[in-house]
Nucleic acid binder design. Sequence first.
RNA 1: GCGGCUGUAGCUCAGCGGAUAGAGCAUCGGUCUUCGGAACCGAGUGUCGGGGGUUCAAAUCCCUCCAGCCGCACCA
Length: 571
Amino acid sequence: MTSTYDTLLSRLQSAFDTLEEGADPVLRTSDRSDYQANGVMALAKRLGRPPRDVAEEILGRAELSGVAAVEIAGPGFLNLTLSPEFLAEQLTGLRDDDRLGIEAVTQTKTVVIDYSAPNVAKEMHVGNLRSTVIGDALARMYRFAGHHVVARNHVGDWGTPFAMLIEHLLDSGEGDDATLSIGDLDAFYKEARTKFDADDSFKERSRSRVVALQSGDPETLRLWRVIVDQSIAYLDLVYRDFGVTLTPNDVVGESFYNNMLSDVVTDLAAAGLIVESGGALCVFPPGFTNRDGEALPLIVRKSDEGFGYAASDLAAVRDRVDNLHADEMLYVVGVPQAQHFEMVFAVARMAGWLPERVRCEHVTFGNVLGPDRKMFKSRSGETVKLASLLGEAIERADAALQERNSDLDDAARTQLAVEIARAAIKYADLSTDRHHDYIFDLDRMIAFEGDTGPYLQYAHARLRSIFRRLGTPWESPVVAFSLDTPQERHLALGLLAFPEAFEASLATLQPHRLCVYLFDLAQRLTAFYDACPVLTSEGVLRDQRLALCDLAARTLSIGLSVLGIDAPEKM
RNA sequence: GCGGCUGUAGCUCAGCGGAUAGAGCAUCGGUCUUCGGAACCGAGUGUCGGGGGUUCAAAUCCCUCCAGCCGCACCA
């Protein structure tokens, strides 16, 4: 079905086109009418005519009869009020559409989304939260839109940190390495790090160990494998706990690109892009300077002949374009890496590895802050582990559920607590503009009131309970939606706006737009719910209201699931 | 120094070229003998960091200043 917005837009567009080809009607939802078109003023300006005049002419040419009533207001706004017939028709269209008006794309693209990317030797912590949550939401949204998503979890399983770990492992005696738990590894990593920072000879040995790793020394690789295997198994558990779609198959870490790194250098050299500087092999993409105003290099091979992460990132670009046939590549990585990615993309373009047709974007995000507005840390000043974050959220959700003395048994209640906890954490992360930092406040995000994940889940569960109370399976009858109360109409308009909200959210890679939409819908819903009796109403009115409830429940369910948030049937 | 990001109601955040700047929380006041009250309705508060400029129209675009955060060659 054609969405309400698209229908209006195309009608208006035809009329605008007759005055100036391609003139933008600037169609928006409105608080003064259902929709408003603001494009007349700009057009009139270009035409050198009085705006209201132009508005009249557009009105005369737009085929809107049966669709919307239009009024010219103020300097030349077009205020559109949807006709009852059109509203009813659109709602009927939604009723029969599993996708609620969101059409699957006709051209399926292969979209490679690089996200999460923890370090395999460490436990996952808040620093990994946003990439994981935002990336997973984008992956789900792309899939729903009908694209082919290839998730890549570019874990840090290579290079100096790993060399450092192996070196430390040798120092302290390997022992029964097969029993190294991830908790041990985390402590182990910290020890190694401390030693690396304090001890120059250890640092040197680590650097040589990188080379051994990169050149495939068997003993080095054996130790490496031990650590990696355990880490991947651990990561999988965390992703499952959080309801993240990443699997071990998506783990394609830095190590994967190891055997492509020398080709990166050779091919860059062949293209005449490599410059040696201070013993390192570099590419100088134009437009990047350091603090002294000198050209800034992208170091592809370090002076110790080890490869840096620029090399593996370049190899990854080639792999994704050549072997995965990516039409679009997203890197969900924090903003501090902005310059690095700009340089990598620039070099890839210079080398001809990244064709113009491939959209390649660094999807940045801000920091997670504590209540003091500084980087979120535990009371003791340590980074907070995702497992403990979720654990605490689950405890609180569970406690809240127990207070409501529901009829759930322990197992069901615990499961529900998990779903609520995930929703709280994910929604808090997704619902603000990803560019901004946000303050992590568990009390607020897990509240059942306000703009929170649990509130949206509850809105959905309330609807589902209505249908449960019916006692018999309900199938939406053909109803003539008449929408006689303002709340019904308001809700209906909200339901019809789902496609544009979804599409805008996806097009801008900003999941928070979908969150804003869903919260607004939930508010319309509760207002409706309060003003319009459903089960106690009768006849066609009851059918109509049930149909609205059904649509709202489906919209919330799809909207939440596409964000990676569960929509429980019962709360 | 250069570059980037951020500065909107007491707090947390939407809005990013359109008509009186919105929501949640908190505060205050109401509603309803609940189709699940984990509800609804109403009220108040804003130099949209400051100052210039562009525009019929600026929180939104440009310049500048202030404040804060981040990045700026061999750690990823």
